[in-house]
Write a protein that binds this DNA or RNA. Structure first.
Lengths: 249, 249
DNA sequence: AAAAAAATTGCAATTATTTGCAGTAAATAA
DNA sequence: TTATTTACTGCAAATAATTGCAATTTTTTT
């Protein structure tokens, strides 16, 4: 692990846990406490954290930026996103759901891709605003504030009028029997509408979502064209999905 | 393998793995570490990666945050926003246009304000997602990517069905004769619709927008209920606006 | 085609950076 | 206060980077 990586690791851990402990970091990273301290000092000099006795805490951000979205397992999500790139082609009409996996994917899209993208996620729309050749349509409605996506009748109405080539759909939980399920009722409804509006349905998620279940069913497994995880597509865990007729990337 | 190929290989590997290691690259490519280092130095010079002890990591800008919105004259805009707070009351239905003045204002809203807010600006919607007691409705449509706002028929249609108590409207340019004018045609149309949908129209802008003009007329000055600038409301420059029947804060 | 010039590459010597350790100092807890 | 934990400093070993140089390959010129 490079030093630069290590420092990123520390900063990421800090954002997630709101504190880091010198000794614990030394153990986790397999290095001496001295080295960790030197890292913490350097990061402190750069103003990236606040060093305290025993470890470090986040630097007090007087006006915290709501635009900074914390992405867990970013590396895995990037792997997934890279696999998904093969599904993109110029001229497609695409629907993208919310979620951080899709957000990471959005950052990986080739800068010159020509496509029409519908989304109902604020962060994803902001990300896609970057792309010169993408026609971007935001699907309006009532905001679900924690997830930063729109939900409700307005969204359904717009989706009912679209015919897209492909949709990229995040997931709360997936398993072979119940299929794709969601935590929130309203989100599950929106995703059902997405399905109906798309020729091809791609679901991307990290492997930890596999074989779990949440209350609201979106669709059965065989309704998905492709699933993409961070696992090797030949992994045993994925066999039953493949057997159900889903393309596994 | 050509040198150019090799460098592409390094960059590709970097994108995939978010780091490259000098020694490992030397092994994989069957070259000496020296050569790899020279490559990394060249790529670093070109700004394509960040060279670090032991290898390289992606250049920070690569991971640039599209969510960081640069706000000019933030202090002045904050002054304006503070004045505007007096116009907010629980229970209001509000329409907010885009623009950084409105964005700054959004950050100043009392955390417990109960209101319904319509907006068609992505950054403002993200900011307002913070507020527990605000019902937030995003007006969807085609995104104007540079301004991060939606425009077009869909927006007009939604606005035509709203009746709001107050709207907060940014401005490209203002002068007494032509009134409020905009750079973009489509934005001017949307703002016209906003006017129609609101009982009260408040326009906030820094004083440098005063007595300037841009191509597309939104409305005459007397159509505005209130204007708010960073100047003292008794400033001479504002007299003629006051004379036109506008409340000046 | 041959000669000259330029670029690439690997090696060795030198220089720089990182890291862990030991001893000491400082901060916290009892 | 004393005991304990955590932090800092200088030093040496290990690791990595740079530089000059020579052999080789590639490109350009004649």
């Amino acid at each position: 692990m490079l030093k630069a990586e290590r420092r990123n690791f520390i900063l990421t851990k800090l954002v997630k846990e709101q504190r880091v402990n010198t000794i614990e970091l030394a153990e986790v990273l397999g290095l001496s406490e001295d080295t960790i301290r030197r890292d913490l000092n350097k990061l402190h000099e750069k103003g990236l954290l606040e060093k305290v006795y025993g470890g470090a805490i986040p630097v007090k951000d007087n006006d915290k930026n709501v635009f900074d979205i914390v992405i867990s397992n970013e590396k895995k999500k990037r792997e997934i996103g890279l696999k998904a790139l093969s599904l993109l082609h110029d001229g497609q009409v695409i629907i993208m759901s919310g979620g951080t996996t899709n957000l990471v994917f959005s950052k990986l899209i080739p800068p010159l891709l020509k496509a029409t993208i519908y989304t109902y996620s604020l962060p994803i729309a902001m990300q896609l605003s970057q792309y010169q050749n993408i026609d971007l349509i935001f699907i309006g409605g009532k905001m679900q504030k924690n997830a930063m996506v729109t939900i409700g009748m307005d969204v359904l109405q717009v989706l009912s009028k679209i015919k897209a080539d492909i949709c990229f759909m995040g997931a709360s939980s997936v398993n072979v029997k119940q299929g794709l399920t969601e935590v929130g009722y309203e989100v599950s409804i929106v995703k059902k509408a997405m399905l109906e509006a798309s020729d091809k349905v791609v679901s991307m998620f990290t492997a930890d979502k596999l074989n779990s279940k949440t209350p609201h069913v979106v669709c059965s497994i065989d309704r998905l064209s492709t699933i993409i995880t961070d696992l090797n597509p030949k992994d045993k865990i994925l066999e039953e999905y493949h057997a159900a007729g889903v393309t596994v990337l």
